[in-house]
């Protein structure tokens, strides 16, 4: 009880815990835990260099302006391209990681990227398939209804929004386009 100096009594003694829980207390000594102390300079990392050789920069690689230079090793997945690439490049060249604008621009780039990619897929041999790509068929063999009925689940309050996140922008875009076409049609006639 916090109103007096005593700690609340322990429900089980150390001997009971040792008997009942496999491995209880084997890491009892805080000084003998693998991440203690947090910083250690005596670990052999396997590195056989003071500074790594530099990976070839095959195409201009964006980087945070908080870096002094391009780090020696980097990922090469999905280089910047299109309008989303321009937005993302602006985020990297103009704003540090400390600025909300940096992250908000990157998030905006993500949304634009999704649109660009969906539209590009419609013109290609394998258009996006919202049914298979969202994994919705798993509702059938994954007991979609009974899984959600078990106990009281807090996530049911918002799971219904997930289809809106996926389909909502498309519905809005199609509705907007239809309204625009109708307005143009009415003006001409």
């Amino acid at each position: 009880m916090p109103y007096t100096a005593q700690k609340p009594p322990r429900p089980r003694t150390a001997d009971q815990l040792r008997r009942e829980i496999p491995g209880w207390g084997v890491d009892l000594d805080p000084a003998d835990r693998p991440s203690v102390p947090r910083e250690r300079t005596d670990l052999d990392t396997g590195a056989h260099w003071d500074f790594p050789e530099r990976q070839e920069e095959r195409q201009p690689r964006e980087r945070s302006i908080e870096h002094k230079f391009l780090p020696p090793v980097f990922g090469t997945s999905i280089p910047l391209k299109g309008l989303s690439g321009k937005v993302r490049r602006l985020a990297y060249t103009r704003y540090s990681e400390a600025r909300a604008a940096h992250w908000l621009l990157l998030l905006a780039g993500d949304r634009i990227d999704a649109w660009e990619s969906h539209l590009r897929s419609l013109a290609g041999p394998r258009p996006d398939n919202p049914l298979s790509e969202t994994g919705i068929p798993a509702e059938l063999h994954g007991h979609g209804i009974t899984s959600r009925r078990e106990g009281r689940r807090a996530d049911l309050a918002h799971q219904w929004m997930d289809p809106l996140v996926v389909a909502g922008p498309w519905v809005l875009a199609v509705t907007g386009a239809a309204l625009a076409v109708r307005a143009l049609w009415r003006r001409r006639s």
């Binding site: 969202t134 919705i136 798993a138 994954g142 899984s147």
Partner: peptide, 15 residues
């Protein structure tokens, strides 16, 4: 894998 993500994301089938 798409179904795997959906199962895990929606917490279905005791995942």
């Amino acid at each position: 894998i798409a179904e795997g993500y959906h199962l895990f994301s929606s917490k279905l089938d005791g995942c």
